[in-house]
Simulated assay, not measured.
Amino acid sequence: MTHIVFFELKDPTPENREALVKILQKLNTEDVPMAQSFECGADILGSDRSLDAALVVKLPADQLEAYANDPYHCRIKTEMAPLLQRSMTVDFD
């Protein structure tokens, strides 16, 4: 399945976008073995419809709960939480 997370920063400066992406880039399949791949990036258009960044995770659907509760993943969420206004997800096969 594909798990996509969209992020909105509290203060959407270029520095905060860069900081968020650097944190997201710490996610990897060695530390989070149930994931098959990670891809992330900051928005480049800055349109009225844009959010600040996105994370795309490929993983087996039956591993989504394990991923959500993975200790390394949870540390990453805690690290980026002070930067975030909100996050939103989409999950599909």
Rank of each mutant, 00 (worst) to 15 (best):
S50A: 15
K22P: 06
L45Y: 10
D91L: 11
M88E: 08
F6K: 09
N69M: 09
D31R: 15
K22F: 05
P82K: 13
D31M: 15
T13R: 07
N28Q: 14
Q25W: 02
L9C: 00
D93P: 03
I4A: 13
S87Y: 14
L9F: 02
S87R: 11
I44V: 12
C40G: 04
I4D: 07
L24I: 03
Q36F: 13
I4H: 08
G46T: 03
R17F: 00
R75Q: 11
P71N: 02
M34V: 14
D93M: 10
F6P: 06
M88T: 03
A68W: 05
E39I: 01
L59E: 04
S87Q: 12
T2I: 14
I44N: 07
A54Q: 13
S37M: 13
C40S: 04
M88D: 02
L24F: 06
D93Q: 12
M80F: 11
L24K: 01
E18Y: 01
D91C: 09
H3Q: 12
Q36S: 15
M80Q: 09
D52H: 13
E18W: 01
L27C: 13
A35L: 08
E18I: 00
K26C: 07
G41V: 01
C74D: 08
A42C: 04
V32K: 06
Q36V: 13
A54Y: 15
V21G: 02
L27D: 03
F92S: 14
A42E: 03
A35G: 12
V57M: 05
K77M: 10
N16E: 07
M34K: 10
G46R: 04
E79I: 02
R86D: 11
P14A: 09
Q85L: 15
S47E: 02
A61L: 08
Q36T: 13
L20F: 09
G41S: 04
L64D: 12
T13Q: 04
V21T: 02
C40I: 00
Q85N: 14
G41F: 01
G41C: 05
S37V: 05
L24N: 03
A19Y: 00
R86G: 11
L64W: 09
Q63K: 15
D48H: 06
D62N: 14
K26E: 11
M80E: 10
E15W: 07
C40K: 01
K26I: 00
A53R: 02
V5M: 02
